[in-house]
Design a protein around this nucleic acid. Structure first.
Length: 414
RNA sequence: CGGGGUAUAGUGUAACGGUAGCACGAGUCCUUUGGGAGGAUUUAUUCUCGGUUCGAAUCCGAGUACCCCGACCA
């Protein structure tokens, strides 16, 4: 992508409405744009990052046997009444009416819809286990929206649902999901801790949240620094606050954290309410056991920025950067332009994602400042200076060191 | 939903009740090109509606939007 053509406009100062670092930086670098409180557009840079994240999540979901589907956001009231959540989940359920005054929920989550969907298709134990997921917009009618992408009204979420014959099988798959989630967060450049939590309006069973430690987090957990055990503070009644880790007896500390994922063993709650049965080996009717597993992708993006930035801008982890390489051309003359263009094409031919700053009306300082703000992991500079040594300059966004390398050696670092 | 705050150009900000200004951005031209460079020039329905006043960005009232705290919250 040539930067002269890229649809974006950076800002030196963030709009005063933004308070936390991730919100400020994502606005300044023009990855996102706010339409209303809790509602955002993803611009080309932001959407590229979003798609990278989606792709990581798809890969990991597919690798544990998930099949992708796409369910509607409009969901009939009757379905929600069957599980009691038309009332229990308000807030954060959005409720709307069509012109015939028929009421709908705007999907906050999809247990109702998916249970209804699989009911006709899961008939015997031979149809199980089953895992379906989707990546889709969710709507939350919460009291308040804060922190930019951290808590939005409309946001994209990956939700996975699993169906099982028995608890054993559910447990087995549940653990697979936990491992897949670990991989997802690692690939996004985050250290997420698994934290025991309560299921809220979803289930009474113990659930696991994935929490990323951060000062600006709205959640409070106690965390063992030795073995990484953690538990959400809302789960603990005050008198029983543990002083030592129940797993390894290490010291525990209270921390703020951002919830970047949640996994639930739903058991038979929804299969019971919505009559999801299967025939066992002896022909008997049995309730399907379910699990559900969510990751908010917008929040994930904000969290990555929250954890990976400095005073100059974002520092994208490799796998979720909008581009792999930022190629910058300084000084507009034939020689420099030709060399940079050639390098740009060579890299593209090798399958490298390059943002090429080909602009001729911007000073070097402005280009560098913008590159730091956007935060692409590898920066390459071609200028008169480097060409004299038949070289180009390489710098990693997260390091201060710059080094010159010969054009012929470029493949060694990419 | 309770409490608090803010609203002036794309962004950030000034202006006692008396000419809407500055910086950055953006446009045009020139000069520049290794850390948001310099010069010239252009760039506004002061959130909306109503009130007070000779005169309102400024005071008053209502509304709206946004932000923060609380409650809420996969």
């Amino acid at each position: 992508m040539k930067q002269s053509k890229l649809f974006y406009k950076t800002m030196k100062k963030a709009p005063k409405a933004a308070e936390i670092a991730s919100h400020k930086l994502l606005l300044r670098s023009d990855f996102i744009s706010q339409l209303a409180s809790g509602i955002y557009t993803f611009l080309p840079l932001g959407y590229k990052v979003h798609q990278k994240r989606e792709s990581i999540i798809r890969q990991e979901m597919d690798s544990i046997g998930g099949q992708e589907i796409f369910m509607p956001s409009f969901q009939p009231k009757e379905l929600w009444q069957k599980t009691g959540r038309w009332v229990n989940m308000d807030p954060p359920l959005f409720k709307i009416k069509d012109r015939h005054k028929k009421e709908f929920a705007l999907g906050s989550t999809h247990e109702e819809v998916i249970t209804d969907l699989v009911k006709d298709r899961i008939q015997s134990y031979k149809d199980l286990p089953l895992a379906l997921y989707q990546i889709q917009n969710k709507f939350r009618n919460e009291m308040r929206f804060t922190g930019g992408l951290l808590r939005a009204r409309e946001f994209v979420m990956k939700d996975l649902y699993s169906f099982h014959t028995d608890n054993n099988d559910l447990e087995k798959f549940f653990n697979k999901v936990l491992k897949a989630y670990d991989k997802i967060y690692n690939r996004c450049g985050l250290k997420a801790v698994k934290s025991e939590a309560s299921g809220g309006v979803f289930t009474k069973e113990k659930t696991y949240e994935f929490q990323v430690l951060s000062e600006i987090g709205e959640d409070r957990i106690i965390h063992c620094e030795k073995c990484n055990w953690a538990m959400n503070l809302e789960n603990i009644n005050k008198n029983k606050m543990p002083k030592r880790c129940p797993e390894c007896n290490g010291k525990v500390v209270k921390k703020n954290s951002i919830e970047v994922g949640h996994t639930f063993k739903l058991g038979t709650k929804y299969s019971k309410d919505l009559n999801l049965y299967f025939k066992g080996k002896k022909g008997e009717n049995r309730l399907v056991l379910m699990g559900c597993y969510g990751i908010g992708i917008g929040r994930l993006m904000a969290t990555v920025v929250e954890i990976n930035h400095d005073d100059k801008g974002i520092i994208w982890p490799e796998e979720v950067a909008p581009f792999q390489v930022h190629l910058i051309q300084i000084e507009d003359n034939q020689k420099v332009r030709k060399a940079a263009e050639k390098l740009y094409k060579d890299l593209q031919n090798k399958g490298v994602e390059v943002l090429y700053d080909d602009r001729t009306d911007k000073s070097a300082g402005e280009k560098f400042a913008e590159a730091d703000l956007i935060g692409i992991p590898i920066r390459l500079v071609v200028s008169e200076k480097t060409l004299k040594k038949n070289s180009l300059e390489v710098k990693n966004r997260d390091k201060n060191k710059v080094c010159l390398i010969k054009f012929s050696h470029i493949s060694q670092i990419i």
